[in-house]
Design a protein around this nucleic acid. Structure first.
Lengths: 225, 225
DNA sequence: TCAAAAGTGTTACTCTTACACCCATGT
DNA sequence: ACATGGGTGTAAGAGTAACACTTTTGA
């Protein structure tokens, strides 16, 4: 198990699937940013943002850095997704550690960079490498995780109404939820703290809630790192 | 995002947490094989089996290979656990893609290799690198996964009694389960097919069951790769 | 016939789901 | 006043957990 440094090295890269929630007239949908490749392989095609891992940079730091470079934002949630390293997935043997992230910004901020565009996460074009596959897996993980953890709040500001929170769940899960039952479940979980303020809108004002920071509950296990 | 091949390369390794079930008088417990390191760093300490990834070898293949070299066995279950790549975890920057596996063998076969020993998974000595942490995470994942998938059968032969299956669950979860309720749950899931044979032992014979291969149910999502 | 595991029955309790209904506000 | 979303009540059904009970074998 000594490292024999003869053959050409394996490239280690990090890519990140970054989700944001785009609110529209009657519903909301998931979007993610893609970068147009300017060189081979797959020149001209859209790909996940990412980059090579610097020798003195942690994997998660690389994900945060490329995320900031692409969107100008800091993630409200960031987690490792999977390490993809099959021999044929890229010329010259590259192992990609893929992360997935949530960002809070709803409207496209100063994110208008060249060669970066946001796409509907459920209707993507043909991407470079195995990136379609990776996005599918990230979507599955997001939908799964929303069921047993509090990540939905990664899309929301500090204070929000129950209807806004429910809208996030509905966008992720792709189906409507009963407002009455949703309220009871989320109130019963103890993860929300009601504030004294209300969001006044077109009809009866709705109470604003914020997160209970103390409750790290059910975030599913010890962090691996 | 071009690969600048100036600095020394990042090493890419695979390690594997291999679980087996050791049956004893009244209960069963989880064990895993460790390898005694013969060089620095951490010479003399116990570590997870693993090795460098060959340039033409898939990550999962590397896990299978090192698993076979260590135990002489083929895994009945093999899944990626996590990619550990923090800067300080090993001298010289190494990214370890860690897998976890189940093997069927109950008794120690011809596994008696030099510098390889099996340890109680819940009472390990101080291991090399961050391997204690990795094992903890693998144990958490195993316990978690047994709740919603069929991996428990990775420890059992083709045909088995419900008591044997329950014993596996009890060893993994670390607590007793009600035989009556366990039977109903597992029978109701439709994953088991009863055979016409019975295991005759010290008391009333117990029916043998086998797996329903058709039901890939609830193995939780699309395979990432 | 007795101990012990195999297997069945029953009940209480929790959680989910569906949906009826009242409340409070802007227009 | 009324439409609309905020918020409460309630009851049926599914799933869980605890435990009493019957069955079948080897010793």
């Amino acid at each position: 198990m000594t490292r024999t440094t003869s053959s050409p090295p394996i490239g280690v890269a990090v890519s990140t699937v970054i989700f944001r929630l785009r609110r529209e007239a009657d519903d909301a949908r998931l979007e993610l940013p893609l970068v147009r490749r300017t060189r081979d392989p797959h020149e001209g095609q859209w790909a996940l943002p990412g980059g090579w891992v610097d020798l003195a940079e942690n994997l998660e730091s690389t994900a945060s850095r490329t995320l900031a470079e692409t969107t100008g934002l800091a993630p409200s949630y960031l987690e490792q997704l999977y390490a993809f390293g099959d021999v044929g997935r890229s010329p010259g043997r590259v192992v990609s550690i893929v992360y997935w992230a949530l960002v809070r910004e709803d409207i496209a901020r100063a994110t208008e960079q060249h060669n970066v565009a946001w796409f509907d996460a459920t209707a993507l074009p043909a991407l470079a490498f195995d990136h379609n596959h990776i996005v599918d897996y990230a979507l599955w993980r997001l939908r799964n995780k929303v069921g047993y953890s509090r990540i939905a709040h990664g899309f929301l500001p500090d204070r929000f109404t129950l209807a806004e929170l429910r809208e996030v769940y509905e966008a992720i899960l792709g189906r409507r939820l009963d407002p009455a039952n949703f309220r009871r479940q989320v109130e019963g979980s103890g993860t929300l703290i009601p504030t004294d303020d209300f969001r006044t809108g077109s009809h009866r004002p709705a109470r604003l809630y914020r997160y209970n920071q103390d409750v790290e509950l059910a975030d599913r296990g010890p962090l691996p790192q």
